[in-house]
Nucleic acid binder design. Structure first.
Length: 777
DNA sequence: CAGTGAGCGAGCTTCCGCTTGACTT
């Protein structure tokens, strides 16, 4: 039995640290929190001074019992959870649950997993900081109360199974408000003027822009008229030195943003790949808010940069974390070994590692030195009110960190034209080749991507590195938000060209508003958001988290009692909850769109049990209203009368096949044909409003053919049991249930006997369900 | 899985932050 038991949060960390310490130390992991608030009474005894009711969840029982056993036989137990609020609480829970004797328990902390840091920690133990623990308890209980008192209000007033919380509800608010900004946005247009000049001396063409844009086509036209036949010369050339500085090494949030921009990863994908890299020992911990690098890392980076690129490329830099909410329990995300320029693994492993390596290396490299040049070009025309065109360019004098890495941007304007400029001098005359005035439109603020939402949340101090990805998945799972592509629409714009002595005007079209993997609010998301803002504006305030964080900090410093802080919050909050349950109306979001052009009956939209729908009012008391569900991509807020009328054009009866009627309608999964009891999806290239009898029959026959190829075998012993060909190869189906067929039998699936099938069903059913099975809807 | 939208009532849902897991219908 080891004399010393060290408990850390992560198993990968445990393995590394065990290597640093001698044989007298056993290092184990507790896998994060080992206790949480119980479900009963919301886990808090509110009348009794907010006394928390803790319990060890089922999936942590085994870890706890193992740690208990090891702790019993150890002389000293070292609690080495992270040095932040959550980490301190983990240590306290361990001390409580494992029943640790104070005299043999030591609390140690370190911010980096290096041997000197660990040894220093062991040499400087302390005791558990109860104030910090209390701050965590206040945070935990506040979140539980907010979540478990607000959500039931939504079940009563909006829809069952919905949820609300300090973090998720504000995340949804950001997306709802951004969408409304975009809906309300009116694009303004102006004319941007760009000229192409020719420098005869060097025979070079280059572009220059007029600093001013014209509001109207007439003004732009007048300017081009004034330039017709005018001369142009270089008025002056300005050059000034510039520099660029590398970005700090990655935190969780910046890694998610950059992996999204450069690799197109979702935040969940980024975290899954990073976890793999971490477990394989390639990178440091991936859930961090710190930009700090260890001394050892700084040294190693310097060595690698000097070796690979030369001394002049190295510049040791220490970065300071700007995020106010940062708790900095870990290092920044960096490669464990800087001399490993790449790793083995699949494509995404390699690409993410490459990104992390480059970002960390670049952060320790010299500035890039630039020379910025602006050429002022005078217009020699008495008729022109404008004085000059400007051509700007940038020349890299010293690459520095740009040799390996340049941070991406979220900016969608890609008009920058920083080409190479000719070596001209003041007084040189230039030949004008062409001047183009193009109509440009202002743009609304961009919709959030998963990663840009994380960035915004971090700026607001809402959420933590470990919760960004789960939060984004929660708001999508609840149906508040969808991540989607949208096709754009065509827009006309004017272009006026002066070429030689000719001026021509043309109307062109561009595609605008197309989106890829952006977050859109759903109707239910908007309704819930508006309801929460109306009744719980305090919680929905963007600074609510920042405000309570200040109080948690005071608790952590021992300046404030955690129970009185909770009391002050709970009193008014709970009163509002009760009042809302008693007084607020059910939320339907009903809106009148207008009246039916023929019957004059009112048409409305509202939220129903199964989602948003449009309704034509009943003709009389005895008659029923006509209903139609909204389609994917439509929203109650923006639906027009015309779109609603279109909805009522379905279902269409389009003729007969095999003696029965065929019906065309649009369901949850898109347009379909119903024939007898069967459903047939209508292919994308067909228009469900136009599809005719002949084409529908073709679709039905094609589906039947595919289905006949899908069926591999039916068993005589049980007609309900079938072997089918699916997306992942053959599988068994009985009634509504599916069962796995072992990979070894995929080849000869048609030869599976009834007995074998029964055996496979038993084994497949016995296997523990994966994420899909466990995930509750 | 493919059109539902009445009303009643039982029994269910839900938070945020630490960690990784065994899996894919």
């Amino acid at each position: 039995m080891a004399k010393n038991l060290v408990i850390v949060e992560s198993p990968a960390k445990a393995k590394t640290i065990e290597g640093f310490l001698g044989s007298e130390f056993t290092v184990k992991s507790c896998y994060g929190h080992i206790r949480d608030l119980a479900k009963e009474h919301n886990g808090v005894d509110i009348e009794n001074g907010f006394k928390p009711i803790y319990e060890v969840p089922d999936d942590k029982k085994q870890v706890v019992s193992e740690l208990k056993k090891l702790a019993k036989s150890a002389e000293t137990v070292w609690l080495a959870s992270d040095e932040d609020r959550e980490g301190e609480a983990i240590s306290w829970h361990l001390a409580e649950v494992l029943n640790l004797d104070h005299s043999k328990t030591k609390r140690i902390v370190f911010h980096e997993i290096t041997k000197p840091a660990i040894l220093k920690a062991i040499a400087n133990p302390r005791i558990i900081n109860q104030d910090l623990v209390n701050a965590q308890q206040a945070r935990r209980i506040l979140d539980r109360i907010v979540g478990f008192e607000l959500s039931p209000v939504l079940w009563k007033k909006v829809k069952p199974s919905l949820s609300a919380g300090r973090v998720q509800s504000v995340a949804v608010r950001l997306i709802v408000e951004r969408e409304r900004e975009i809906t309300d946005f009116n694009a303004d247009s102006s004319f941007r003027v760009v000229a192409v000049f020719h420098d005869k001396k060097e025979n070079k063409h280059f572009k220059a822009e007029l600093p001013k844009r014209f509001k109207t086509e007439a003004e732009a036209n007048a300017f081009l008229e004034a330039c017709r036949g005018a001369g142009f010369h270089v008025d002056k050339v300005e050059t000034k030195p510039g520099k660029r500085t590398p970005a700090a090494p990655f935190t969780t949030s910046t890694l998610q943003q950059e992996a999204s921009r450069k690799l197109g990863f979702s935040v969940a994908q980024t975290m899954a790949v990073a976890q793999k890299l971490y477990e394989a020992g390639h990178i440091t911990y991936m859930r961090t808010d710190s930009v700090n690098l260890s001394e050892l890392a700084l040294e190693a980076a310097k060595e690698e940069i000097e070796k690979a690129y030369g001394k002049e490329f190295s510049k040791t830099r220490k970065y300071n974390t700007k995020t106010a909410s940062a708790q900095e329990a870990h290092e920044a995300i960096r490669p464990t070994y800087f001399n490993k320029h790449s790793i083995a693994g699949d494509g995404s492993d390699k690409r993410l590692y490459d990104l992390i390596w480059k970002r960390a290396i670049a952060s320790q490299m010299s500035d890039a030195a630039l020379e910025k040049t602006v050429i002022h070009i005078a217009i020699d025309s008495a008729a022109s009110t404008e004085k000059e065109f400007l051509a700007s360019g940038e020349v890299i004098k010293f690459e520095g960190f740009l040799k390996v890495y340049l941070e991406g941007t979220d900016d969608e304007n890609e008009d920058a034209d920083d080409g190479l400029l000719p070596d001209v001098k003041a007084g040189d005359s230039l030949e004008m080749e062409q001047i183009t005035a193009t109509e440009k439109f202002t743009r609304a603020a961009p919709r959030y991507t998963e990663a840009s939402l994380v960035k915004k949340l971090e700026e607001l101090g809402i959420g933590r590195p470990s919760t960004y990805a789960p939060t984004i998945s929660t708001i999508q799972k609840r149906g508040y938000v969808v991540k989607e592509d949208r096709v754009g629409r065509e827009r006309k714009y004017q272009e006026i060209i002066l070429s030689g002595n000719e001026i021509s005007t043309s109307t062109l079209t561009e595609n605008t508003g197309a989106e890829k993997s952006k977050l859109f609010p759903t109707d239910i998301g908007s309704l819930v958001n508006d309801f929460l803002i109306e009744h719980f504006d305090g919680i929905m305030d963007y600074s609510f988290t920042a405000n309570v964080e200040k109080e948690f900090d005071e608790i952590a410093e021992g300046l404030k009692s955690w129970t009185s802080m909770l009391q002050k919050f709970y009193g008014p909050f709970h009163k509002t909850v009760d009042k809302t349950i008693d007084e607020a109306d059910r939320v339907t979001g009903e809106r009148e769109l207008g009246v039916h052009p023929e019957s004059g009956l009112p048409i409305t939209v509202r939220m129903g049990r199964y989602g948003p729908f449009a309704q034509i009012a009943a003709k009389s008391e005895d008659d029923k209203p006509t209903y139609a569900s909204l389609r994917a991509g439509q929203s109650m807020e923006t639906l027009t009368l015309e779109e609603a009328l279109d909805l009522f054009k379905m279902p269409r009866m389009i003729g007969e096949f095999e003696g029965t009627e065929m019906k065309v309608a649009i369901g949850r999964f898109g347009p379909y044909i119903q024939h007898q009891k069967a459903f047939y999806s209508i292919p994308k290239e067909d228009d469900p409003y136009q599809i005719n009898q002949d084409r529908a029959i073709e679709v039905i026959l094609a589906k039947r053919k595919a289905d006949s190829e899908k069926l591999i075998k039916v068993f005589n012993e049980d007609q309900e049991l079938q072997v089918l060909n699916g997306r992942w190869g053959p599988y068994l189906k009985k009634g509504k249930d599916n069962f796995k067929i072992p990979k070894t039998r995929h080849e000869d699936a048609a030869k599976i006997t009834f007995e074998e099938a029964l055996d496979m069903m038993e084994k497949s059913a016995a296997a523990p369900k994966g994420r899909r099975g466990k995930a509750k809807k």
